[in-house]
């Protein structure tokens, strides 16, 4: 079984919204119809998007850090939005696990959006059907595109490579290795939706340095008298180790 998904690396996401705009550009231009906007330049703009980048502040000043958090449909392996759909417009593809909406069957009852704990679905106010991330299903299988471009628009746009795309059921795929080795996790695991998209946590690079490692006891400048000699009473690492 194949389960295509995105892996989002929160360690390198800089919150530039390039994935948001490239997603909107690709998906509003396709044969499935536009993603409608109202008052885009007016006082009260609103629109339909598949992908949003949100920002959270963790901790209290001065110990804070900002986490930029891209959010789109997670293509759950047990999607709660699919069984509730009365028409079968909302479905999960057998062959690659992508959760899609058939815009020709959707009656716009919004029930699937109620049944998604992540708020990943947005009703298009003009086409009056439910819309959501398609993992760029109209691009990733398009053989007229060069092979390295057969990836979702957001993945291609990301300048820091924070978005990875692949099959999370293949244990040797890049995304599976990342999840396994870099602590990939799912959102809201408490609801058993088993999202296919995973997030990689912030990973701090830390080294531990002891005080005597900061002093170079055998500094030749000190031995030669150019610098004042260092008074060290205890033996230093240089005295007791042969490097």
């Amino acid at each position: 079984m194949t389960q295509l998904a995105l892996i989002i690396d929160l360690n390198v996401c800089v919150g530039c919204h390039a994935c948001v705009t490239s997603c909107k550009q690709w998906n509003t231009s396709g044969p499935a119809g536009y993603l409608s906007d109202d008052n885009p330049y007016g006082a009260d703009p609103t629109g339909t998007f598949f992908n949003r980048v949100q920002s959270f502040e963790i901790g209290e000043y001065p110990n804070t850090e900002t986490v930029h958090f891209p959010k789109s449909c997670l293509h759950c392996e047990d999607p709660p939005c699919v069984p509730v759909c009365p028409t079968g417009a909302s479905y999960k593809r057998e062959q690659d696990g992508i959760v899609l909406v058939d815009y020709d069957k959707c009656i716009g009852c919004k029930y699937c959006s109620w049944a998604c704990p992540y708020g990943a679905r947005e009703l298009d106010e003009h086409m009056k059907v439910m819309k959501k991330c398609t993992l760029c299903v109209d691009r990733i299988y398009d053989e007229s595109l060069p092979e390295n471009e057969r990836r979702p628009a957001c993945v291609l746009a990301c300048p820091t490579n924070a978005r990875l795309f692949g099959d999370v059921h293949d244990p040797d795929s890049e995304v599976s290795v990342k999840i396994r080795e870099e602590g990939g996790y799912q959102l809201m695991p408490e609801w058993g939706t088993n999202p296919a998209n995973h997030y990689l946590p912030r990973r701090k690079q830390k080294i531990t340095i002891h005080e005597d490692e900061l002093i170079r006891a055998d500094n030749p400048l000190r031995k030669e008298g150019t610098h004042p000699p260092q008074v060290i009473e205890e033996p230093t690492l240089d005295d007791v180790t042969s490097w």
Partner: peptide
């Protein structure tokens, strides 16, 4: 918020929902 974004910290505050206007959400 902890389970929603998967960060283990008691002090999480949203600074941006990703848009200035409203949306379906």
């Amino acid at each position: 918020l902890q389970t929603a974004i998967g960060v283990r910290h008691t002090g999480i505050v949203q600074k941006s929902m990703g848009m200035m206007g409203g949306s379906f959400n």
